[in-house]
């Protein structure tokens, strides 16, 4: 350990460069992870806030909730048979405020449920983000598909869907706007092993998120970038330590000649890897948390500390693997070869 630390102290610039690269890559990973989380929240907070359970869609809907229609009789039976079951629908739309300014929303309606606000006819409960657009309790909103008016009766926190704030309305109002009697899905909470229901297909919460158009593609792209960066950082470790080890082959040979154990040389490399990674990660976690606090309000950014710590763990494991792979050269070093190489 001491020898490893002494090398870091003596060759500050070399380790500073590696540390800076790890810091930048990990910081970028945290920021993209924050954006991925933020976009995911923005896209599907409505569903993510629902407790675990099963969403049932019509089998003919081809796993797309937009196309799903649950037969009214079947819906009534399900609601009667399953405690806490909720039928619901979501459709994109818009409302006009008193100044006739248009606001995109996701209209959500449901049967009586503890999961969503209970809204009376001609009333609307909006996601709080619409407050920033000047809407307040008591305002009257309109929609050109709706004959009446919506009175804003309250706001709810973090209820967004498909990057739009949610507008909870009554089932009667929803049916008028979209000219449908059937709901799109029935949610049954808490069932880990879904009951097979004739004509319906079940999805757990995670699977249901993927039925949201664009959600899967968006998350897949961002997650690919994140894991790509994690793999790149592992490769950086492997390459950097490989280069360092190549430079130190002679030294390792001499150390082996005088009796230093191979495991001690590996430990030296691991200690250096851990030190550089830990310092870089502490800095990038700290800075990304600061960024999370000062990020512009409109930017979908969410980076819980647990996510940062989880990714940090992955970085440490990847760094360890990268450094260890490059360290196989140490095992192969022959003392004699090093002695014959001359001065290091």
């Amino acid at each position: 350990m001491q020898m490893a630390w002494k090398e870091v102290k003596k060759s500050k610039m070399k380790f500073l460069i590696l540390g800076s690269i790890i810091f930048l890559v990990s910081f970028l990973t945290f920021i993209i992870s924050g954006l991925a989380n933020g976009l995911s929240e923005d896209n599907a907070a409505l569903i993510k806030n629902v407790p675990n359970g099963q969403f049932y869609l019509n089998e003919d809907a081809k796993q797309t909730y937009n196309l799903s229609k649950i037969d009214v009789d079947q819906q009534d039976k399900l609601l009667a048979d399953y405690n806490g079951a909720t039928a619901m629908s979501i459709q994109m739309g818009f409302v006009n405020d008193t100044e006739d300014k248009q606001h995109s929303v996701a209209f959500v309606t449901s049967t009586d449920s503890e999961l969503f606000p209970n809204v009376k006819d001609n009333e609307v409960v909006l996601d709080a983000s619409l407050k920033d657009e000047g809407i307040k309790v008591g305002d009257i909103l309109t929609n050109n598909q709706f004959s009446g008016e919506f009175k804003v009766v309250g706001f709810t926190e973090k209820q967004t869907y498909s990057h739009a704030p949610v507008a909870f309305i009554s089932m009667k109002n929803y049916q008028e706007i979209y000219r449908v009697m059937e709901m799109q899905t029935v949610f049954i909470p808490g069932s880990d092993s879904p009951d097979s229901i004739k004509g319906l297909e079940s999805f757990n919460n995670k699977e249901f998120l993927n039925t949201i158009p664009s959600y899967g593609a968006e998350q897949m792209s961002l997650n690919m970038i994140i894991w790509f960066l994690v793999v790149i950082s592992g490769m950086l470790f492997a390459i950097f330590f490989y280069m360092m080890n190549v430079q130190k082959i002679g030294l390792y040979g001499i150390l082996k000649a005088i009796g230093v154990k191979t495991i001690s040389l590996f430990s030296m490399m691991w200690y250096q890897m851990l030190l550089i990674t830990a310092v870089s990660l502490v800095l990038s976690v700290g800075l990304s948390q600061v960024f999370s606090m000062v990020a512009p309000a409109g930017m979908p950014f969410s980076l819980p500390l647990e996510t940062s710590l989880l990714l940090s763990g992955v970085f440490l494991v990847i760094g360890f693997i990268g450094a260890t792979i490059s360290g196989f050269q140490i095992k192969k070093v022959e003392p004699l070869q090093a002695i014959q190489q001359g001065e290091m």
């Binding site: 020898m3 001499i254 000649a257 005088i258 009796g259 230093v260 290091m344």
Partner: peptide, 17 residues
């Protein structure tokens, strides 16, 4: 090698750091 032998080579082979 580590406890009973000592080595001096043509080059000093000291640890640079």
């Amino acid at each position: 090698r580590s406890s009973e032998f000592g080595f001096v080579f043509q080059s000093s082979h000291l640890v640079p750091f």
